[in-house]
Write a protein that binds this DNA or RNA. Structure first.
Lengths: 173, 173
DNA sequence: CCCAGAACTGCGAAATCCGCACATGGCGGC
DNA sequence: GCCGCCATGTGCGGATTTCGCAGTTCTGGG
């Protein structure tokens, strides 16, 4: 629980299509929260150990974890620093859109180089995080693909120089 | 040796991947990359299954995974959608700094509400992602704590309206 | 009160994890 | 060359965990 230095962020959408309407997952009770906390410390922790920590049987923990995964509330994955995995250029791109945001956001979501898409209030309509192998690749994505999307009025890029922090420890504070 | 496992994807040129990315972390070879890919799909995948996929014994996979974890190259964790865990307000904050960036970045890193800190090139010096429980909390962090840091010249906030995409699939493309 | 569905428990059997002893393969010093 | 050192890989049990299933408890309607 004292780690940092990894990358990427929260979890959720898995398949690209996602037009969730009222899909509000039932609120998590404190036991599920506790299970998630355990798995945020170590995603491979045995169910029996988690059960002991949260006061449940091994089988019950297994069922709840499976349900959390199925519902998409949580994912158990390896996260890395992209730099060490060979992706040497990253950037956050702020985008201004004319008209409906959804088509643009969906198009961004479909790009494999785009790791993170969020609609925002403020001087950008959309923020997108891009992970590329080199400068040429980055330029291609931003200049040729994103700026070419219909509805995109303008973009502004912030190339990453150094990653300072990454955590997943909400609930552990 | 009874090896006949197709590496699934075309082998990459020998020298191209082993680029020293400068850091103290030795560059990852293609086998470790493949292991990480497996764990990005499912952080709990059994070592034996991974071994079959990458052409290594179960024990060898276990050792490599352990080393990757020890070195901090990779973490296996549960990631969740903050909204479902009770954090209702998120924002990206762009910050402009006067003088050295490091003290500001370090101070941000120490705040538990700040989940993500990156130094950038562009019209912001630092981008920080904030996860809060409600509006009051968010306002407090931005207005009272971040803007109060010595060296912070100005900030601009982008409140999250909707999360559209999250992935961890680098290397799987 | 009774029923149905959801959640939890207990328990083998099968699969996995884990430590350990032993090969194999560079690599630098002598 | 030759040798030892260190890193990495393999094979193999025994301990542990996972997994499926049947039975039990709990809860909310009707």
């Amino acid at each position: 629980m004292h780690s940092e230095h990894v990358s990427s962020r929260s979890a959720e959408p898995k398949g690209s299509r996602e037009t969730r309407s009222g899909n509000h997952t039932p609120p998590l009770d404190s036991v599920s929260l506790a299970i998630i906390e355990q798995l945020q410390e170590d995603g491979r922790r045995p169910y029996a150990a988690i059960g002991k920590a949260v006061g449940l049987s091994e089988a019950a923990v297994r069922q709840r974890v499976q349900k959390l995964l199925d519902q998409g509330v949580m994912q158990i994955v390896a996260v890395t620093d992209p730099l060490t995995v060979g992706f040497r250029r990253q950037a956050m791109v702020g985008i201004n859109v004319e008209g409906d945001l959804d088509p643009v956001a969906d198009a961004l979501t479909d790009m494999s180089e785009v790791e993170y898409v969020v609609m925002t209030a403020g001087s950008f309509d959309i923020l997108a995080e891009i992970v590329c192998e080199d400068d040429d690749h980055l330029l291609d994505v931003i200049n040729k693909r994103i700026r070419a999307l219909p509805g995109v009025r303008s973009t502004e890029s912030f190339v990453y120089l150094k990653l300072k922090k990454q955590t997943y420890m909400w609930g552990t504070r």
